[in-house]
């Protein structure tokens, strides 16, 4: 019921997103069959809105999934080396096989992302964890190292612009034919929903999961593969959207808890809605110029995140 209202709200935002942009669209001209208006709607606005919905929902789900299987509230693909590793993979492909189809580049990016996440888990295993916050801090250090490597090669190959496009979520370049890979990311996120119970169980810890007959290692691997796949898709199509995978699942968890089956629809809707709202804001604030959605979410996200941490500390005390 309340979920239905949330869907309506996102649908309204989507409708607004269709109408906001540099070139004006008018309903009457669309109805009259104006070719130029239809072209803008079909080639630019619809793809952009769909891209926002798909990227927002799947990145938020990827964040939730990662938090559940790694069992830490403060991780998401951009604080675990996953995003940077995907970027490095894409860079390697751009250098070695620039002509490869984008889906191949994406696949290589996903493999790198999985490798980066694996590296993160490996480091985690060797560090004594005295505090919840150590986990994301280790991830951020690893992210820094991977980022440095990426920057080094990109600088030498004069590809800094390209790397920036991956690391900074920006949808102003989305046109028909340039976003469809996001459907694949959404499909992977859907798998996460179908297998939700397994992931919630895996989140209870290895011993409890094993006791309930779950192959814990395999479920963990599946979960992190989904996260890596979604990340690679988003990085290669629209660029990474920071904080989304962090704040949306945390807010939903506060309200609903972590039973993943129940949380996924809410996380998807809220993620899509938040990204849509931020992108619309970015289009309006300095019109006719645009502020990338990544920047807007960076500001809103970091503030929300700070509040969450402070609130969490208070609850713990």
């Amino acid at each position: 019921m309340r979920l239905g209202l949330a869907f309506l709200l996102v649908a309204a935002l989507a409708a607004i997103s269709l109408t906001v942009g540099v070139s004006g669209l008018s309903l009457s001209r669309l109805l009259a069959g104006d070719g130029r208006d239809w072209l803008i709607l079909w080639e630019s606005r619809v793809p952009r809105t769909l891209a926002l919905l798909l990227a927002g929902a799947s990145m938020a789900i990827a964040g939730l999934l990662m938090q559940i299987v790694i069992r830490n509230r403060f991780v998401e693909p951009s604080t675990t080396g996953t995003v940077e590793a995907a970027g490095l993979g894409l860079l390697v492909m751009t250098l070695l096989a620039p002509g490869a189809p984008v889906i191949v580049k994406m696949a290589v990016g996903a493999v790198f992302a999985l490798g980066g996440t694996g590296l993160f888990l490996l480091v985690l295993r060797r560090v004594p964890l005295r505090d919840q916050m150590i986990v994301p801090l280790i991830g951020i250090i690893l992210t820094g190292v991977l980022h440095a490597a990426t920057t080094f090669f990109a600088y030498r190959a004069d590809l800094m612009q390209t790397v920036l496009a991956w690391t900074q979520g920006d949808l102003s370049g989305v046109l028909r034919g340039r976003y469809e890979l996001l459907w694949l990311g959404a499909a992977m996120a859907a798998v996460a929903w179908i297998a939700a119970d397994r992931f919630t169980l895996a989140g209870l810890g290895r011993d409890m999961a094993t006791s309930l007959g779950l192959a814990h290692g395999r479920v963990l691997a599946l979960g992190l593969s989904i996260v890596s796949g979604v990340t690679a898709v988003v990085v290669v199509t629209v660029g990474i959207i920071p904080f989304l995978g962090l704040i949306v699942p945390n807010l939903v968890s506060l309200a609903l808890g972590d039973n993943m089956r129940r949380a996924v629809p809410w996380v998807a809707v809220s993620g899509a809605g938040l990204v849509l709202a931020c992108d619309i804001l970015g289009r309006i604030l300095r019109a006719p110029y645009e502020i990338p959605v990544g920047t807007i979410l960076g500001v809103i996200g970091s503030l929300t995140f700070l509040i969450l941490i402070l609130k969490g500390r208070r609850n713990a005390a």
């Binding site: 069992r71 119970d197 919630t200 989140g203 006791s211 309930l212 968890s253 808890g257 972590d258 039973n259």
Partner: peptide
């Protein structure tokens, strides 16, 4: 059931107990 069951996941009592049925019902 081992000792020291730290849970990061926020689950309700009923949800947790229901997961005891996982081997029978797969959710």
């Amino acid at each position: 059931l081992r000792q020291d069951n730290h849970l990061n996941a926020r689950l309700t009592v009923k949800e947790l107990v229901s997961f005891g049925r996982y081997p029978h019902s797969k959710g």
